[in-house]
Design a protein around this nucleic acid. Structure first.
Lengths: 150, 150
DNA sequence: ATCTCATGTAATGTTATTAGTTACATACTG
DNA sequence: CAGTATGTAACTAATAACATTACATGAGAT
């Protein structure tokens, strides 16, 4: 999630397609990992990829129409919570009682996460980034991007 | 978490001390695992353990005064969320913007979980279990406990 | 006393998950 | 057709969670 958003915002700052190679360097990982994770976004239509000379990845959506929730869904909804019920459908009535109580709490937390994700668009992230870059430029004249973007 | 609560409720149903051996069978795990996880609860004073003949684990707290939050704390606060920011304190302003947005959402979800944990006492779990046991007994005459409790 | 039983804990082993890598096929561009 | 980039399967490595073994310590029972 974190990594994918990072990549998307970088792509938005970059005219023309970005290669997996380039993106992998920004994310400090391997090009294949980038392709793997971007595959979900491509299926969902948020990015497009092209092969061959001058190929690479390109944004294919309106940043203000796509929320973090959409990205999460495109990523195949990885589990959000680190803990959960020890077992589904236990025989033991004690465990059933525990599961009811914990399950309710977990469901609420998950719902909150999804709701909050749905309230944040990629555009908002991008705006926030640009704001912080302007602020930084005023004080340091730095570009505020990765050194490996050069 | 789930497992610990299961064990605690079982102990409450059982007069006298329960051995790690017995509890492990109910949790379908190893006695050493039980001791390991119970160690935190003992330090917090929620249970007591005794060695030798007739030894084992015993509840040492008032169920209506201890919340799931207390248990969670005693368990050394394992991480609740499965996903997080890729890196703390990144150089990259893009990643900083992503982290701000995601971090806020994660913090909210974690706060919600802790708050909800704080609102549930062990007594409530126990009451819920007894209620479901009464309901079941009416329809099946079963004891509704583990078969391996016999 | 000492034998047995139970916890305490370190060390080790096992398993599952995730991330990373290699290898090679496919497709597009010049 | 040479070169470059994605697509994907297969494999390896790193990590973490869980389980087991081994042995020390302490508390009754005889």
């Amino acid at each position: 999630m974190s990594g994918v958003l990072h990549v998307l915002l970088h792509m938005a700052e970059h005219d023309g397609p970005s290669t997996s190679e380039t993106l992998a360097r920004a994310m400090e990982t391997n090009p294949v990992v980038v392709r793997r994770v971007m595959a979900g976004l491509r299926e969902a239509g948020y990015v497009r990829s092209e092969k061959g000379h001058g190929g690479g990845w390109r944004i294919a959506c309106d940043f203000s129409a796509v929320t973090l929730r959409d990205i999460y869904d495109a990523l195949d909804r990885p589990s959000l919570l680190a803990i959960g019920n020890r077992s589904d459908e236990p025989e033991c009535l004690v465990e059933q009682a525990v599961n009811r109580a914990l399950g309710k709490v977990f469901d609420e937390a998950e719902a909150l996460l999804l709701e909050r994700f749905g309230a944040v668009t990629l555009q908002m992230l991008s705006d926030d980034f640009h704001k912080s870059m302007r602020a930084r430029r005023k004080s340091t004249h730095s570009k505020g991007m990765h050194s490996h973007d050069a």
